[in-house]
Structures are given as C-alpha cells and as structure tokens.
Write a protein that binds this DNA or RNA. Sequence first.
DNA 1: CCAATACATGAATACTTGATCATATATTAG
DNA 2: CTAATATATGATCAAGTATTCATGTATTGG
Lengths: 122, 122
Amino acid sequence: MKKVKKDKEGECEVLCINERKVASARKTMKSDATLFKLAEVFKVLGDPTRMKIVSALLQEELCVCDLTALIGASQSAVSHQLRVLRNMGLVKYRKDGRIAYYSLDDDHISSILTAGLKHVEE
Amino acid sequence: MKKVKKDKEGECEVLCINERKVASARKTMKSDATLFKLAEVFKVLGDPTRMKIVSALLQEELCVCDLTALIGASQSAVSHQLRVLRNMGLVKYRKDGRIAYYSLDDDHISSILTAGLKHVEE
DNA sequence: CCAATACATGAATACTTGATCATATATTAG
DNA sequence: CTAATATATGATCAAGTATTCATGTATTGG
C-alpha cells in the first residue's frame, strides 16, 4: 500500500511528498543502526523500576540490598533489572565479598536524565 | 519477604542495608511521580519507529506523508505513533488543508537526543 | 563444616504494546 | 456532488516484558 503511482513511463509519481524536505532530512538523520541503539537506551530508561535504580545511583554506589530498600521492589526484581541495565552498559558493579556495589557506568547518563527532567518539569 | 527482622524490642534490625547511604539517596532523589513521568518520556522515545520520527523532525516540520516515506513504515503505523508522541507532548502539529505538519514540541527534546547519542557513540 | 546471608537466574504468568487491517473523517479537485 | 487524497482511529493479534516464585551460587561467621 505504497503512496506512489506508476505513470506511463514506469516512473514513480509521488503524491503529497515534498522531495526536497525528505531528501534533506534523510541526509542529516543518523543511521538506522544508530537510531536503533539510541532507542534501545531510552527503552531501558523507560521503566519505572529501572529509572528509580538509575536515579538512586546518581550520587554514589549502592549495593543491591540498599537499592531494594530504596525503591520498594523485591530483591529478585531489582536483580533482574540490574542485569538489563548492565547489559545496556548503563551501570557497572564491583564485588566486595558477597556484596555487589552498583554504580553508573559513565557520566552521560546523568546528563540524559537532566535533559529529560527539563521536559518533564516544564 | 522484606529483608528485615524484628528483634526483641520490636524494632527493625536491617541486614546489609547502609542506612546513611539509603537516607542520603532518598533525600536527593526526585519524587516517585517525577521519576514515573520521566520514565514515560523515555519509554516513548524507546521505540525505533518513534525515534526515527523524532529525529526526522529535528530540522524542520514534516507532513505525515513525508514521515511515512522517510522512515519506511505504514501510514497507519506512523499515525498511531504520532498520536503517542502528541499525547506525551513531544510533538505538535498544524493543519493546512488536508495536510498535517508535525514538528517537535520544545527544544529540550533535541538535547535529550544529543545526550543519548553521546552514550551510544561512546 | 554448616548455616545464614547476598545476590543471580530460569520458568511461568499476566500485562503491555506495536503493527496491521479495515474503516472513518476531512478536505479538495473536477 | 463525487471521487480521490491525507490523515486518524478502533479492533485484533502476535511479540515482548516485568514481576513473582523457586532455586542456585558464592561468601562468611561461628
């Protein structure tokens, strides 16, 4: 159901498409792969539990037990979501005995949240 | 299954929880409502189709038809996702006859993407 | 060594959600 | 008015996902 029509010469005659604007946008847009990765990062931040975890880690590293107490979820749920955050490279952790201390992986994450907050807080 | 124990005086004796760090984090963390809204915004940006739409609109307004051509999705899918973006206040639109021109709702959105890109592009 | 603690993880389930299909509305050309 | 165009939207459905439950691994105190 493409919005195009074949004319007598076999060429495409577009309808309402503004070719110039479309070409211009296509030129400056990031690659599909980059946009996909970007969407993945935002998707990971787009869950309340994970958002709470990340924002709790903004100041200092915390262990799983601290995080569980802080955000009001089960230890299992926190652990599962920490793995998601780890896999996306948003948090890292170090082990000290049987305690795992989690922290944010890089400084960009703080600025992502800050930028988002500006939109949320009007 | 709370990680707490009642002791003889009826008080809570925590296990590995670092009370000081937890209290400190709790103080500076945004409210649950704010974090929830923040997660919602990121969730909306966390879909490849919507991410493509938003990034296509970074430079100038585009009509639905342009967007459909640009991002390679059906008109219906684009329309549905535009509504999600509208409801979240990420895009706005104006009608000119039967054509709807969409644009980003505020400038923060660009900075959110920029911050995210810094993480994605290492 | 043994029990308790801290955390991780597989399975099952309920819930969410993005795409498609069909159709509706609105505008304009003829 | 009528047909075509541009967009919106409800319903359906398949795929994804967050939580819970049960259990596993690793570390440490006694």
